[in-house]
Amino acid sequence: MSDVSVDMSPSLAGVKMTAPLLEVEELKVEFRTRAGIAKAINGVSFEVNSGETLAILGESGCGKSVTAQAIMGILDTPPGYITGGQIRYRGVDLLKRTDEERRLVRANKIAMIFQDALSALNPVFTVGFQLAELFRKHRGMSRADGKKRAVELLDLVKIPAARQRVSDFPHQFSGGMRQRVMIAMSLALDPELLIADEPTTALDVTVQAQIMSLLAELQRERQMGMILITHDMGVVADVADRINIMYAGRIVEKAPVYDIYAKPSHPYTKALLESIPRVDLKGQQLNVIRGLPPNLTRIPAGCAFNPRCRYVRDACKVDPIPPLYEIKPGISSACHFWKEVRGDD
């Protein structure tokens, strides 16, 4: 570490370091648009602790990014509004704090990596400027010290010739290198929690693996909590500890990674698994989930997945919505017929 590193990370009143890193409880978000009210998040709860990786997985449009934006406090309002629930960082409900307090949580405590680094980095500033900005504005460093730290960060994420590249603009980097810059930026202020929203979706398959292993390595070294958001079941297997499966703004299954793959407890999870291309089944027709995710302004009554479900019964088509049934400690499923889905007796 460099001589200019001083920890001046601002502290948030009421924080208890013994409390869980992040607890999201019954979060509800809606978008008020001309087409109606889109209920994007309908009571999502989960918890992340230091040193662990939680994967949030679901088809595109199910509300993963909105969840991340709500936690960061960067939702577009209007049209997006948080209509209920709590987001607790170390026991402090962030939704009750002032804008200024929330601003200081961002990047200092909770940082985020975006999907498409080309559009997420500002095209008119050098990556050095965009990295140094964090040190200058949050740590009061000079431009020169900020730049020194920027070079260190580029080294940390293994960008070759960091000293030269720090003066380059985002469009001069390859896709993978650009995502490394994004990662460097998120780690600048040593956050406790990292939210990675589809960090590899925009990349080539070979580069995807490198970026995932870099992320996993940095997360382990720094004992950060990480929320890894993806729609790709193949990405999470090696990296995540636990998985939450999301559908139409709800979590429909929670389980440790191994159990999800070995024995899915929700028909949606099962369908997702069947849609992964597998080497051992090469040549066979790939299963895609039939039908489309529901329109969020008109979510069907009962289980939102019922129109597409293989196991559907009459009970699935009427309210109440199936609760998250706890199957074993750490495993739960929002399906009335989880036993049948698992093949348990």
């Binding site: 997420a120 095209p123 504005k137």
Partner: peptide, 27 residues
């Protein structure tokens, strides 16, 4: 104002003034 890099600037915990005055305006 709705560009991705503006969202990044917000996620960096920059003040509203800087997000608008530096990141949005320059572009």
């Amino acid at each position: 104002m709705r560009a991705d890099y503006v969202r990044t600037a917000k996620a960096k915990g920059l003040t509203h003034k800087r997000v608008i005055g530096v990141h949005t305006l320059r572009n």
